[in-house]
Design a protein around this nucleic acid. Structure first.
Length: 416
RNA sequence: GUGAGUGUAGCUCAAUGGUAGAGUAUCGGACUGUGGAUCCGAUCGCUGCGGGUUCAAAUCCCGUCACUCACCCCA
């Protein structure tokens, strides 16, 4: 038993689960290229300021969940809790807005949040996501949402639900928040402490409270959709219309908010009925002020991030192409050189070949061949070497034939 | 940060407060040019850790740590 364990909230991924990860990663690469997204990889850690400015210093993520540390030169660095701020930073820093077209990126990688682990929630977890810059048309919102939902459908993830809202923009949201605060303060006495804290700091979140009294109270509170400015309202209507053209079903949820401050206008979330409490598979929205906020041009952006662990929980056992492993058996140590050379030739031909160096005799070697699920065992021992041949045994059917060495490749090809 | 449940062999799990066990896996043998099946044998444990109660603790009590789930938060 090992003394040192994986740090809390982290885990090792190995077969057979790793096959799901490889499958998912390949699917992401294949799918998003169809929309001309290009992969971007940004550093795992960044200056802390990127996140406090980008995500919002009042958010839970920044206040409570960041892995922040000082390096030896006293720089404050933070393991990225999400990737959008980094992608925006990279685009600004490398002038991608001028040099790359189209301005569409996707990413895959680990993120870090200091949270108490539970089902579907880890301290090191993985997200993939997409970002589109410089396009404020509502049709892009719809296409991004389509590319999120359709991807999950392609993975045959059932029982998912798309929720949609508009969280307004800096012109209309502050006005609404005042209206909401006023209504909330009037009811303050009836509400939980948590709730009262949110009224001042993050009023949109008060709708989240699941305590019956709070939910009861907030039911009649004014909602944001009645307070959107004309531009946000029209934008949102066009998003919904485009989604209907795309046959993407959605549910309006006027109480839907996002945890990061940078969102404007469209906000959406896909949840799964098959997960526990951590049921959000992906979330995203538009962030038309983030790029400027981080020192870039006044440019629109939209994207989403998806939790890969949560998607993996939905994936069936790997339906992998059967790999036909070859096993080279040599019986006695003195034929090992021949076996090594044969294995080398076969690998160069593209076959996966296993050679057991511990097997003392053919019996042991066959046992090992069985254990690694070899499709064919090639026997190269005294008889075969003397006659420049090799015996090939089909492990499933138990058929065995001795054939000339020079015919081996052709014969294997037929069986593959 | 709060709460609940669970910690026994590599894995899955047993064991009224009274000798820590089974299945499986691993290794060896039956079987020195042939695997899976069967049979025989062997290895494997500070019962998470630290205290306490008791003649006696895997078992009861306290603490602690880990895992799991929920709150919270979010993907």
């Amino acid at each position: 038993m090992s003394e040192i364990k994986a740090a809390k909230g982290t885990r090792d991924i190995f077969p057979p689960e790793i096959q799901k990860w490889q499958f998912l990663e390949n699917a992401i690469h294949d799918y998003y290229k169809k929309f001309l997204y290009q992969e971007i990889r940004t550093p795992i850690f960044e200056h802390s300021e990127l996140f406090s400015r980008g995500i919002g210093s009042e958010t839970e993520v920044v206040q409570k969940e960041m892995y922040t540390f000082s390096d030896k030169s006293d720089r404050s660095l933070t393991l990225r809790p999400e990737n959008t701020a980094s992608v925006v930073r990279a685009a600004i820093e490398n002038n991608l807005f001028e040099t790359v077209a189209p301005l569409r990126f996707y990413y895959i990688g680990p993120m870090f949040r200091y949270d108490k682990p539970q089902k579907g929630r880890y301290r090191q977890f993985h997200q993939f996501g997409i970002e589109v810059f410089a396009d404020d048309s509502p049709q892009v919102d719809a296409e991004v949402i389509f590319a999120a939902v359709d991807f999950l459908n392609k993975l045959r993830i059932a029982d998912i639900r798309l929720e949609l809202n508009s969280v307004g923009c800096p012109r209309c949201r502050p006005l609404y928040l005042e209206v909401l605060r006023k209504a909330a303060r009037a009811e303050g006495g009836r509400l939980c402490a948590d709730f009262r804290r949110k009224i001042e700091g993050n009023p949109l979140r008060i709708f989240d409270c699941k305590l019956p009294e709070c939910a009861e109270t907030t039911r009649d509170f004014p909602l944001l959709d009645g307070h959107l400015c004309a531009e946000c309202r029209d934008h949102f209507a066009a998003v919904r219309e485009t989604l209907s053209w795309m046959n993407v079903p959605f549910q309006l949820n006027p109480r839907l908010v996002r945890g990061l401050d940078y969102y404007t206008k469209t906000a959406f979330e896909v949840t799964s009925g098959q997960l526990g409490a951590q049921n959000a598979l992906l979330g995203g929205g538009r962030y038309n002020n983030l790029i400027k906020e981080l020192g870039g041009p006044d440019m629109a952006g939209i994207g989403f991030a998806a939790g890969m662990e949560r998607i993996i929980l939905h994936l069936e056992n790997p339906a992998l192409p059967k790999i036909k492993n070859l096993f080279v058996a040599y019986g006695e140590q003195k034929w090992l050189a021949h076996a090594i050379q044969l294995a080398e030739v076969l690998r160069a031909e593209g076959y996966p070949v296993y050679l057991d160096f511990q097997g003392k005799n053919l019996k042991k070697q066959f046992k090992k061949a069985d254990k690694i699920a070899a499709a064919f065992t090639l026997i190269l021992a005294e008889d075969e070497i003397a006659s420049k041949s090799v015996s090939i045994k089909n492990m499933a059917s138990q058929e065995q034939k001795k054939i000339p060495l020079k015919d081996l490749n052709e014969r294997l090809k037929k069986n593959y």
